[in-house]
Computed example of a mutant assay.
Amino acid sequence: MIFNLGLPKTGTTTLARALRRAGLRVADWKIRARQTDDPGLTEAFVGRILYEDRFASGDPLARLGGFDAITEASALAAGESLWPQTDWALLDAIRTRHPDTRFLLSARDPEKTARSMMRWHDLGTSRLPRNTVPGLPRGFGGTEAELAAWVDGHQRFAAEMFGRGRFLAFDIEDPGTRDEIAAFLRIDLPWWGRANANRTGAA
């Protein structure tokens, strides 16, 4: 399993596309009908599945074993506020039960990430400040400065908790990123680009 700890707007969709182009089965945010024969997983948020299985059996990946990678675990929609990539107990359960898991952290300059969040639909202007999010309680996250501090804290948390070994943090804007990820995962990445980008000047 490949598990990305990245926050929204840090290249999670780009990573998903790259891994799919490499032939891997990827769960990104939500399980689509074409990805599973299990009706219990269809249209379910990846984050909810991780938590349901963590508390049902102790193994967050119990029903996601058919996938090779999880590129975005969080969900902030339809009344859900799920952030497995910030939950040490859940991540440690994955690491303990699946010791071959390789953890990635898709990262980006915190200020650029914050600006992107503010422009992405209502993520920064409404959804984040109106919900309780780990490290960003309700009422916070409505400014670029608050979002940048949150992003920076998460990126430092991940690096501190995982260190080296089966963990790679990468900057999505670094020109050497594709080769770095390919070497770490020991796979070929035939595509690397920019997916799910904000439109220029989007409100």
Rank of each mutant, 00 (worst) to 15 (best):
A69E: 00
D68C: 03
E43W: 15
R130Y: 10
R127K: 10
K9S: 02
V46L: 13
L136V: 02
G141S: 05
D59M: 09
A16E: 03
G65Q: 04
L123K: 03
V46N: 04
R48T: 14
T13S: 15
H121Y: 14
A73R: 00
S106E: 02
M118K: 06
G47E: 03
D174H: 12
A202T: 05
R17V: 15
K30T: 15
V151L: 06
G176T: 10
A56F: 14
S57N: 10
R54C: 13
M1E: 04
R130P: 02
F3L: 11
A169Q: 11
E52I: 10
A75K: 07
R95S: 13
R127N: 06
F157N: 05
T125Y: 12
A44I: 15
G142Y: 06
L50I: 14
N196P: 00
A89E: 11
A69R: 00
F45S: 04
L128R: 01
E144Y: 04
F103M: 11
M118D: 04
W120Y: 14
L24R: 14
E144I: 10
R186Q: 11
A197Q: 03
S126P: 07
L5K: 02
G153T: 01
A169N: 07
T13E: 14
A27F: 08
A158R: 03
P175L: 09
S81D: 08
Q155K: 05
L136Y: 00
T36E: 11
R102T: 05
M161D: 03
R115C: 07
K30W: 13
G163F: 12
Y51M: 11
W88G: 05
D152E: 08
L76N: 06
T86Q: 11
T12E: 04
N198W: 01
I172P: 00
W88E: 09
M1L: 08
M117C: 13
P175K: 07
I172A: 01
R17N: 12
V133W: 00
E43R: 15
A44V: 15
K112F: 11
D171T: 01
F184E: 02
E80P: 05
F157C: 05
E180R: 12
M117L: 14
G65L: 02
A202I: 05
R17F: 15
P99I: 13
L90K: 02
K9F: 01
D122P: 06
N4H: 08
F140M: 07
A182P: 01
M1A: 10
A62V: 09
G11Q: 02
F55N: 07
A169I: 08
R32P: 03
G65N: 02
R108Q: 01
D188K: 08
P39M: 13
D100C: 13
